[in-house]
Design a protein around this nucleic acid. Structure first.
Lengths: 213, 213, 213, 213
DNA sequence: TATGAATGAGCGTTCATTCAT
DNA sequence: CATGAATGAACGCTCATTCAT
């Protein structure tokens, strides 16, 4: 059994270690966001993090692993902020749930500007592991949306549509809008609520005038 | 002044040169589509094209230039197939024009499966030149859509919407749906017309049931 | 079918390539002999060979492969110079055959001073591939000697001995003597015939005086 | 002058220190024997010894020094077990002394399987210091054997032979036989006495049948 | 004394590009 | 015009060693 002193030490050491990893991850977000995965060398990362090569490899076993962790964090954060639309007494209207999801995704990506930039920009194609993770994630979201669309249609809340295509289109819409503001224009989105509202409105009512509220 | 013989020669030579370039570009589409930009080496391209290293550099000044040309072709082809929505006596209904545009884009990308794969997958982030070209192109499309949305609203054909966001969302929808089918599922799209219809329908009428035809 | 010109070219190119490889191998023999496998870096080899890094990797796929080729050459040369002792009308006395083998091995190693140095010195332990090759080779020689000892005993030409141990001891004798002269003393052996004779004499007659000719 | 208490402390501390060093050396034998010098990292050693990096460098100034100590121990042990053949009234027959030496060397190496593996396998070539030590040691043995052979010949106990070469051959015989059994076949030698006898018999009587007892 | 996080020189390897033939 | 051998800068990674705690 470890003494209390040892436990205290190891606990503090583990905390320090986590902090260091975190620091590297945060710095790497910036660097990858600025230069892209391939153009970023280990030298760039350790230069920005002000650590030595050896230290980097103490915390990550490769450049790939570093990127995978960033992808994992992105995916985890997003997964924890989207919720399947459910019809329950204690939950808001289904359409409100959809709106809330959009809002939360926007908030999250805006808060994690660099990470979002990296992932929206060029994560696909980096390596098979990353491709698999992202595809799995998008497929999960797509599945969620498809289910929501199908249930919503059964319940008469929405029109029956080609759920597969519409779900994919909705995903693409959100990605593109966020990509456009975060990466292309490199601005913090002025009015996150307006953005969510505009997307939500477009999704629900489309373009035709007879759909006017 | 060149003699006629020399002109004849140089004309033939220029034609031959163009043909060679074309051959390399076509082969490169396949290779880039299969392996991605970074994982594709010059060795892969010249191996597939059955030419020597030296010959490659006779026709392209770098790997980057080769890729730029592919991007240029993609952009040109797409530009030549989309048309701004205009209200003129000799043209179809504006909504029909939108539908036609969607349909043509889908057709083009399906016809150019490899090129589309490359560009939808990971073109962004390859280098600043490519980023600029693609951004310019997407901005052009976006501008076109924004204009159409604004004019449509003025004319009462569509609801007034946040044109910027909706235009971006429409672009993202189309990209994502095509990406999903062309790259992720790697299938030829079974029913291109149905896909266009589904997107068109979603764009116009959204999800709410009161929008039912 | 290739034209004669192309054949001529490719034949010449292949010859040039072989020559280059050979040149690198020869230089590498020197370098490995002087510094040992591990202390020798690719930089040392290409420096001594006066080629660039890239060129080295054009001819060898790794430092390991370079060393493997050297081992292969060593083993091949030795295999081609030792012959199993056979009793046939047109061949010399079995003991003379043994003497000849010893003489040929000594000659070969003296002629290939550097290569022998590398292999006698520290080839074992470099990697599993090398270990396997050398062990296989020594086992082959050992097997040959064991057979010769057993047959010789059956024919009454030699005493019955513990063939396994004696064969191994004979191998060790030859290795150590050559190692001593080639590597430790770093001299060309003054009298190769005397060396062969001394070993041969020791093998046949041992130390006891009653064995005096 | 140190107080008795301090002396007691420092004596105990020194003993502890020696014990620690010893423990590391013993563990390192195993590790080096299993993986070889170059493939063994400090991480392997401290992992097996269950000490920290810092502690290792408290006891050894480098990986090289650790190995040097192992070589020293090997050489010391061997030196303490071989004795020069001397003709004295209170000592056995010279040939018996030779047999005893062989037997003791075999016993020692079998008892120190790991250490022997390391040293027989790949010690040569590790660094100049090790090379020097081993060469000095082998030269010492060789000198001893040469003297014995020359004296033996003078006394008429053995034939006059090329003492240099025969001494080297005898060393090589013993090394190779032990190497073969300890390292290649990785077995404990079944009958150490038979091995000594076979070598002794071969050394004294050679292969020719007229030498039959 | 004991620790283990931090270091950085040095390694083997890749690959886009050049140029003599 | 065509070739492919040659180049070398740049990369990701390792590991013996140090030193603040």
């Amino acid at each position: 059994m470890r003494s209390q002193v040892q436990d205290g030490r190891s606990v503090r050491a583990a905390a320090k270690r986590r902090k260091r990893r975190e620091q590297i991850l945060v710095v790497a977000e910036h660097v990858f966001a600025a230069k892209g995965y391939y153009a970023t060398s280990i030298a760039d990362v350790i230069g920005a993090a002000e650590i030595s090569r050896g230290t980097f490899y103490l915390y990550f076993e490769s450049k790939a692993e570093l990127f995978h962790k960033l992808v994992d964090r992105f995916v985890e954060k997003l997964l924890s902020c989207v919720e399947g639309v459910k019809v329950l007494p204690d939950r808001p209207e289904p359409t409100q749930q959809m709106y809330d999801n959009i809002q939360r995704v926007i908030d999250l990506l805006v808060e994690n500007h660099d990470l979002s930039t990296v992932l929206l920009r060029e994560a696909v194609g980096v390596d098979d592991e990353v491709d698999r993770k992202l595809e799995e994630f998008y497929r999960f979201l797509q599945g969620m949306l498809i289910t929501a669309l199908q249930r919503g249609a059964q319940m008469g809340l929405i029109r029956p549509v080609n759920a597969h295509i519409v779900a994919t289109a909705m995903l693409g819409s959100i990605k593109e809008v966020l990509y456009h503001y975060l990466v292309v224009q490199r601005v913090d989105i002025p009015d996150k609520q307006a953005m969510a509202t505009a997307l939500y409105d477009f999704f629900l009512r489309g373009l035709l005038p007879e759909n006017e509220g």
